[in-house]
Each structure stands twice: as structure tokens, then as C-alpha cells.
Amino acid sequence: MAEKKIVSIEDRIPKLKEARKKKANRRLILYLSLFFLLIAVILYLQSSLSHLQTINIKGNEHVEKEDILSISGVSTEDNFWKVNGETVAKKLEEHEQIQSVKVDKQFPTTISININEVERVGYVQNDGSYYPILANGNSLTSYELKTPTGDAPILVGWNGQKYLEEMTKELKQLPDSITQLISEIHWSPTDQNPYKIHLYMNDGYEVDASIRNFSQKMRSYPSIVSQLDSSQKGIIHIDVGAYFEAYSTDEEKGENENENDG
């Protein structure tokens, strides 16, 4: 039978003391590391290193960058960690020309504000000035323009708010590819038809139509034009049925263009 080796307590004590010492040293190093890390974080948060360095604004076309910054309340003096994206978005979405906002924060010092503006469907002409009409039906009477920006048709002679609102709804439903072909929309009501409108197109044609179902009937415009002789201009009627009426003479065409300019 093998003899058991007996280790005395006196022999084990130095090894136990050394193991305890190593464990205590590791714990001390951990505590010191956490302490200095905490100090570093506090110094970082209190210094300009944690401030915003870059504010990117994207998607805005009509609302000025300076206005967006002012409304958002965000500046390069702000601490990156204290900027609340949802709060910034809510502030900006109160602007009448802004539909939605998405705010992205990119560590360590960048914030991106992505703007989705309410679409402009037209510009109402009044006393030599132009006022934007938004897709939600709002008229921006406080935004007076001497010349329209060309991104939407000009609406001329719209004195009836009811008909203007209906026209706005129709334009909202019209594809952008067709809206961009329209230069001017004149409200030309008659006793028999208060919904009658007359359009001047960028390609030289005129369109006689009605506000009612305008967005549906106007979709056929490209197809109708593609079947016409491009050298022969005139009026395309899409109110009742669809047919083309060529200008009888160049003089008559000139008179129509002069009326448009007036």
C-alpha cells in the first residue's frame, strides 16, 4: 500500500498568502481602472470633445437651412449625448412646409437631420406675386414670391377657394411626370360649368378640361400628344370625350399666346 504524503499547514500558509495577495492586486487594478475610466468619461462629457462637430441637413428644398437649425434648437455647442432625436423631429414637424423628419446620430460628433417637405402642387398668382399651394391644401400666403420656382404649375384667376381646394386635390393625385408638363392652369368658369379650366403646356399645346376627374383624364395627355403631328399645335379637349382642335392660323395662335402672357 502506497504511503500517503502529508503536507503540513505551515508549508501551505506561504502559498495561501501569495494567492490572496495576487487576488487582492487584481481587484485593486480593476477598481483603479474603473475609477480612471469614470474620471475619463466625466472629463469627456465636460469637454468640447463631446460637443457636436457636424450637423448635416438633407432633403430640404424650400425651407432654408438656417430656419431648420433655428427651429430644431441644435447647435455645435450642444453635447452629443444630450441631443434627443425625437424631440428635434417633433419641433421641426410643426413647420407648415415640413411633413416628416428623421434624425440620425452618428458617434462621436455628427447628427443628420433628414427633411421630407410637403409637396408644392402649384403657385397662385395674385397682384403680380405668387404664393405656394401645398399638397395638404394649405396656401402659404406669408411666402410671397416675385417669380415662381418652376417646380409646379402657376394657377391664374382662382378667386373661388372651394374650386382651388378641389384643384389642389386633383393635382396631388396627378403623376409628377405629367405635372411637370403643365405651365399654367387658368380657372375659366362659365354659367353652365363653374369647374371649367384651361391649361397652357410646356410643349406648346393647350388643354381644355374640368376640375372634376382632372387627375384621371389628364393621365391620357402623353398618349394623345404622341399621336399628334408635333409641328401642328392647338387645343386638346379632355372634358367631354377627347379630341384635338388645331389652331386655324398662326395669327390665332399668337393671340392665344398673348392672352396667356397677359
Rank of each mutant, 00 (worst) to 15 (best):
A2P: 09
K5M: 08
I13A: 02
K21M: 12
K21T: 02
K23D: 04
R26H: 03
S33P: 00
L34A: 10
L38A: 08
I39H: 01
V41S: 00
Q46W: 12
Q46E: 09
T54M: 08
I57F: 11
N60Q: 15
E61A: 07
H62T: 12
H62I: 09
K65H: 14
E66Q: 15
E66G: 06
I68L: 14
I68R: 07
S72F: 04
G73H: 06
V74C: 04
S75P: 00
T76Q: 14
N79L: 00
G85M: 05
G85F: 04
K90L: 13
L92H: 08
E93L: 03
E93Q: 10
E94T: 14
H95M: 00
Q97I: 03
Q97D: 07
I98K: 12
V103K: 02
N114T: 10
V121C: 01
Y123H: 05
Q125F: 09
Q125T: 03
N126Q: 04
G128S: 05
Y130H: 12
Y131F: 15
Y131C: 11
P132A: 09
I133H: 02
L140C: 07
L140T: 02
S142C: 00
L145I: 06
P148L: 04
T149H: 06
G150I: 10
D151M: 10
D151Q: 11
A152C: 13
P153Y: 14
L155Y: 14
G160I: 11
G160K: 14
E170I: 13
Q173V: 03
I178Q: 01
T179L: 14
E184H: 13
I185C: 04
W187S: 15
P189N: 08
T190Q: 05
P194F: 08
Y195K: 12
D208H: 15
A209T: 13
F214H: 08
S223D: 14
L228H: 00
D229V: 09
H237G: 07
D239R: 05
A246M: 02
T249I: 13
G254I: 09
N258I: 09
N260E: 02
N260S: 07
